[in-house]
């Protein structure tokens, strides 16, 4: 919309997806996963108690997208499709193992979110395809998630670095599953697979979190831009990753005690 308003984008046709009944705002839980429809706006997510309970990081990320005015119009699926490397919700969705549903008259396909972006502002969508929903699997073990964003101010800020972390704990307290998404440090939102590998099977001790933070750097290829230097971004990735994992672990333990 900003692009159209400024005249940078001059589309021949604009289709208002809000007029399509099948895509109406909906957050549904079925068969071990949540499905969030294309027209679900950030405010809908913020006000959903199930999302707050299962995926607190997603609420944390949704709450810092623009202003209330923006969040009343901006959809989760739109935040994904826009393919901005600095978007807030994608690192969390990658961490949570989300997938997206792409629909066209040829049929429907589901692809893992971390395979959706192909390059800077490039997506795997084919001509004639549109995203109709995002799916997030429910964790099967005690789980916690967290989102951390580094910026110069708290509101209406585009991240210098942002991190989504999701952790599942085994009964013995070791990390059974880990998801980590990084924003603003590559051409698109990336998964920190190296860090995830270090975490899985380990106990969440400070040395392990620090090692995971360092390992996350292998996924980061930051650039200098008006918000930050690449060096500063590289310096901050380990810090934010280890803090986000620690916060997710704390939540996983708290959730475990409550149930």
């Amino acid at each position: 919309m900003v692009g159209i308003r400024h005249g940078h984008l001059r589309p021949g046709v604009v289709i208002d997806l809000k007029g399509i009944p099948d895509l109406r705002p909906a957050i549904e839980e079925a068969e071990g996963e949540f499905t969030i429809s294309a027209n679900t706006v950030m405010t809908d997510l913020e006000e959903d108690e199930r999302i707050a309970r299962h995926f607190p990081a997603l609420i944390e990320a949704a709450r810092v997208v623009g202003s209330v005015q923006i969040r009343n119009r901006a959809t989760l699926v739109g935040n994904i499709s826009n393919a901005s490397p600095a978007a807030d919700t994608p690192p969390v969705l990658v961490a949570l193992g989300a997938s997206v549903v792409a629909w066209s008259t040829r049929g429907e396909r589901t692809l893992p979110l971390d395979q959706f972006w192909l390059g800077y502002r490039q997506t795997a969508l084919q001509p004639g395809e549109l995203l109709t929903a995002v799916r997030i699997p429910l964790p099967r073990r005690p789980a916690g998630s967290a989102f951390l964003k580094l910026g110069r101010r708290r509101a209406l800020e585009i991240s210098i670095v942002c991190v989504g972390a999701s952790i599942e704990l085994a009964p013995d307290g070791a990390i059974a599953a880990a998801g980590l998404g990084l924003g603003s440090v590559a051409a698109y939102t990336v998964r920190a697979s190296g860090a995830e590998k270090i975490l899985v099977g380990a106990r969440p001790d400070p040395e392990v979190l620090a090692a995971a933070g360092e390992a996350a750097l292998t996924a980061a290829t930051p650039i200098d831009d008006l918000r930050s230097k690449a060096d500063y971004r590289r310096a901050m990735v380990p810090v934010l990753v280890s803090r986000a994992v620690a916060a997710a672990v704390t939540r996983a333990k708290q959730g475990d005690r409550q149930t």
Binding site: M1, R5, D16, T43, V68, Q69, I70, N72, R73
Partner: peptide
Amino acid sequence: VAGRNVNSCLVLAAE
């Protein structure tokens, strides 16, 4: 719009 505050400069009238 329907009780929610929005930036009217970024909403098409047709929406």
